[in-house]
Amino acid sequence: MTVTTASKVQGGIFTLMVVRIADPYDPALDRELAEHVALSPGFFADAPVVLDLRDCLGCTSAEDFTALRQLLRRHRLVPVGVQNASALQLRAAKAVDLAAFSGAQANGARRAAPEVAPRPRLVTQPVRSGTQIYVRGGDLVVVAPVSAGAELIADGHIHVYGALRGRAIAGAAGDRDARIFAHRFEAELVSIAGRYLVSEAIAPEHLGAAAQVALIEDRLAILPGWSKG
């Protein structure tokens, strides 16, 4: 006789976005969320998020969380749990089916600590047409050529120690200080923090040599070589 089970429990490790909430009723929150999501709607569409309550004194009733959930849903974000919540906040969160995630730091250290930057992702193989590499929250370093039709995306900087012929999208989560460096710059498209340039708009003298791309006064600038910009 075969035994079938209705469910199977397996472990899984996921990267979740964390939204830090100070005051759930602050109108600025709505605006800031909208700005953030508008930078790259694709990444945020129906993304699960954890609410970090380390700076939040409110959010002590189930109604607060219901209102917060509605606000996030309007921006197509799906709250799945809370982090760094007080006992009272945690009880209210559980009442509306939000899970408790363990805090970023050990209990007690509730105030902000310096963030540790994640290690950059290193790619040593050629990045072929049709491939997409995304480094969430960090830098991307490629020591091989990147073909036309390939796509590099990073929340931080992108370094290519080879020919960059595909697309490079740095500061994908909105970091305006992110830059793109290419040993041989022939990109199809470059973008930083939502601003972009297609190759047609790139002056031909920038092509074929080392270059970096930076966002200067809200415009993408292509700087030859490794100058400070």
């Binding site: 709607p41 694709g42 569409a45 036309a148 039709g149 199809e188 498209l189 972009y196 297609v198 047609e200």
Partner: peptide, 27 residues
């Protein structure tokens, strides 16, 4: 999808920013 070539044949490959899938996904 995945083997884009019409842009090359039409000579507009240097002007592609968004595509069919971006539109379908609402991006």
């Amino acid at each position: 999808v995945g083997l884009r070539n019409l842009d090359l044949v039409m000579g507009c490959e240097r002007r592609v920013v968004f595509d069919f899938i971006n539109v379908i996904n609402g991006d």
